[in-house]
Amino acid sequence: MPPVETQQQFDSGLGLEVVFPTPGQIMRRRMLTHKGFIIGGLMVLAVFIVAIFAPYIAQHDPYHQDLSNRMITPVWSETGSWEHPLGTDAMGRDYLSRLAYGARISLFIGFSCMAIAAVIGISLGLIAGYFGGMADMIVSFIITVRLALPAVLVAIAVVALMGGSIQVVVMVLGCLIWDRFAVILRATTQQIRAMDYVQAAKAAGCSIPWLMIREIMPNLLNSIVIVATLEIGRAILLEAALSFLGMGVQPPTPSWGLMISEGKDMMLFDPYLVTIPGVALFFLVLGMNLFGDGLRDVTSPEGRS
């Protein structure tokens, strides 16, 4: 890696004494120059701002039905008005308000599914990678079983049995999308476990939880964060798919997937009903993936300059 910071030596003409930056400095410097990371981060940040300030953005109650103002088209069409910038739906609810509150649902589902998946996947991956042998065989079998299950079908079956609600959707999706965490963490743990510094820590008398959490985990953090961003995107899309099928979040909650589902009957006449939440979903998931991709480059220890 090329030196980035240098310091003139006492007695010039000898060249420089190279001062290498700390891992943190390298990361900060790369963050500021990585386009994908910045663009993706800004996209996700935008959705966050919308979600946090939803009450201020929304001029109407997202649940309030006003049947006299049904199917008002967005402001850029001929019949649109600034009263409802994104129009209203078939129930006369303000689309912008529903979209803003929907961001909360999507982000909440994305992050909480990821958190559940991370806990399951990281534990399984660490155990399999660190202990190897029998533990590895059992975990690998569990992973294989999980990969053989079609996520959407299982989710539909469970929701059909337990009824659709945000809590159920989060639990079901969280318990279904941990596979990537487990697979990637298992492989990286295997690599890191063999490093001499882990052996040295073991020889210093560190306990197994200490080794896993304090010595191995910091070196897994970048893989974890990258998988986490991808899983958030995946959870958001799965939620939308479930809601679209009527098996996820139940009406009248303003979920983006549900909005698409409710708009699909009128899709041919009023395409904005489907396009607007669709674009929002695309925007958020693209941002998440760009951000995750950028994070991988930014945090990779050896750097790819």
Binding site: P3, G13, G15, L16
Partner: peptide
């Protein structure tokens, strides 16, 4: 060992 970057002499 110094790193030979920059103007060198001597």
């Amino acid at each position: 060992v110094p790193t030979p970057i920059g103007d060198l002499w001597g």
